[in-house]
């Protein structure tokens, strides 16, 4: 009882902190000078990180196994990974981009996890026989860390695309209609980037606008590449450890199960992204398009396949005899 109360409290605290962080971000977009507010939003993300960590630890103690056995727990872990990426010192140099991406991403995963849509799987379920292995921690945590990093990176690429497309559109004096469509399609997360670019336009009104814009695009490109490379390593380790585990549990390391196949597709798409980067002519917009495709494919892999509920990875209603 005390565990579930604690869990409840932690969930709500983390959710509200993320909401506050996003609000402060919006304010800092409009008024660039308030540095204190920006600092507080940084602290907010760190607070969120510790809240979600506490939440996961609570669940771990309470259920007695690593809290990654169903979709709800994996969503919580995903938002934990987002906040983890944020506080990793390596990316410290460039927190402004990442926190604009991470804040909304975390609130969406957190919000979806705690929303009424998934109430029936909130309870920590028992661990089915096939999941009782040390590989669970390795495989699932690597996969979700990989998803989180790849989502961040591809969102940065989407932002890059939006700004690049916007530039061209401005040139032709066409309307913003398609852009709004895009914005709502990607769950509104891009709107933040739009706003950011708006600010950029306003502030750089008297300065050479295109220079700032190209600098900004270059920065986005660089960081999305860095984050995606990191996520790609996690994804590789995750898929391979999954294959080794499958060989232990099911006697075959690759069985073309939908989840496996889509994870492989994700891997290939990001491999394409990394290859387009080796050609200097294709950098920027072209590789950003590939990364945006990757963004959609991660969601298909993560949610779409689960919604179908087929194959070996359907742990909501898992039985071993599914093949």
């Amino acid at each position: 009882m005390i565990f579930s109360t604690l869990e409840h409290i932690l969930t709500h605290i983390s959710f509200s902190i993320v909401s506050i962080v996003i609000t402060t971000h919006l304010i800092t977009f409009l008024v660039d000078e308030i540095i204190k507010l920006y600092d507080s939003s940084e602290k907010g993300i760190i607070m969120t990180f510790f809240c979600i960590t506490g939440l996961l630890v609570t669940r771990w103690i309470y259920s007695g196994h690593f809290p990654l056995s169903n979709l709800y727990e994996s969503l919580i872990f995903l938002s934990w990974s987002f906040s983890l990426i944020h506080i990793v010192p390596y990316f410290k140099k460039n927190q402004k981009f990442l926190s604009t991406i991470i804040g909304p991403s975390a609130i969406f995963t957190q919000g979806f996890a705690t929303s009424g849509l998934l109430t029936e799987i909130h309870e920590s379920t028992i661990l089915v026989p096939a999941l009782q292995s040390e590989w669970l921690i390795m495989h699932v945590s690597m996969m979700i860390l990989g998803y989180a990093a790849l989502l961040c990176g591809s969102l940065l690429s989407v932002a890059l695309l939006v700004i690049a497309v916007r530039k061209n559109r401005k040139f032709f004096f066409t309307s913003n209609h398609l852009l709004n469509l895009n914005g709502s399609f990607f769950f509104g997360e891009i709107e933040y980037m739009n706003e950011r670019s708006n600010v950029l336009q306003n502030t750089s009104f008297f300065s050479p606008k295109n220079y700032y814009r190209s600098q900004f695009i270059q920065q986005l490109d660089y960081w999305s590449y860095r984050v995606i490379s990191l996520g790609f390593i996690f994804l590789t380790i995750g898929i391979l450890s999954g294959a080794v585990w499958a060989n232990e549990a099911w006697g075959s390391y690759w069985s073309w199960d939908p989840k496996e196949t889509w994870a492989f597709i994700t891997w290939i798409v990001f491999a394409i992204y990394l290859h387009t980067r080796t050609n200097i002519k294709w950098k920027g917009t072209n590789s950003a398009i590939v990364a945006s495709i990757g963004f959609l494919i991660i969601w298909i892999c993560y949610f779409g396949v689960n919604l179908l509920g087929i194959g070996l990875h359907s742990y909501g209603s898992f039985t071993l005899t599914s093949n």
Binding site: W256, W262, I265, I268, A271, I272, T276
Partner: peptide
């Protein structure tokens, strides 16, 4: 060519699911 091949493999796998 290599990138086209990777896209083809990905598309065929998606079709397979």
């Amino acid at each position: 060519l290599a990138i086209a091949e990777m896209f083809a493999v990905a598309a065929l796998m998606a079709l397979g699911t």
